[in-house]
């Protein structure tokens, strides 16, 4: 077997480690929600962290991001993360401000005004 390819595509051990870790992380997230181990913001932060850890696990053990030859793979990955952060964070920020700045009465008045046009 070509050693270069083995390195680039991983091996049975790396796939199995990634697979077992993913199962454990999924089960941890599932039972922390169904068994109410945490509540409120602590639970949200906990399952968000588990999802991010599983993202890293799958990027390394399944997609072999660390073994890709071109540095540009990592560059566009980080650029994508920047765009995603702006897109998701920005949307939530703007919509939260809109909700905060408009009372339900204002929203109704605005919608009635639109209807009459």
């Amino acid at each position: 077997m070509n050693t270069e390819i083995t390195q680039a595509e991983g091996n049975l051990t790396s796939y199995t480690v990634g697979f077992v870790l993913s199962i454990l992380l999924t089960l941890a997230a599932y039972f922390s929600v169904t068994q109410h181990i945490f509540t409120g913001n602590a639970l949200i932060i906990f399952i968000a962290i588990l999802a991010l850890v599983q993202l890293v696990v799958q990027l390394f053990f399944f997609l072999h991001l660390n073994k890709m030859k071109s540095r540009w793979n990592a560059v566009i990955f980080w650029f994508m993360l920047l765009i995603v952060a702006i897109l998701v964070g920005g949307s939530l920020w703007i919509m939260k401000n809109l909700n905060y700045n408009m009372t339900p009465a204002q929203i109704n008045a605005y919608m009635n005004n639109q209807d009459s046009l």
Binding site: T26, A29, Y30, V33, I44, I47, A48, L50, A51, Q54, L55, Q58, L59, F62, L63
Partner: peptide, 14 residues
Amino acid sequence: DVIWIFIFTLVYLM
């Protein structure tokens, strides 16, 4: 599968 992690967490678990 990576995308599904986030659907599972952000849509279903949340």
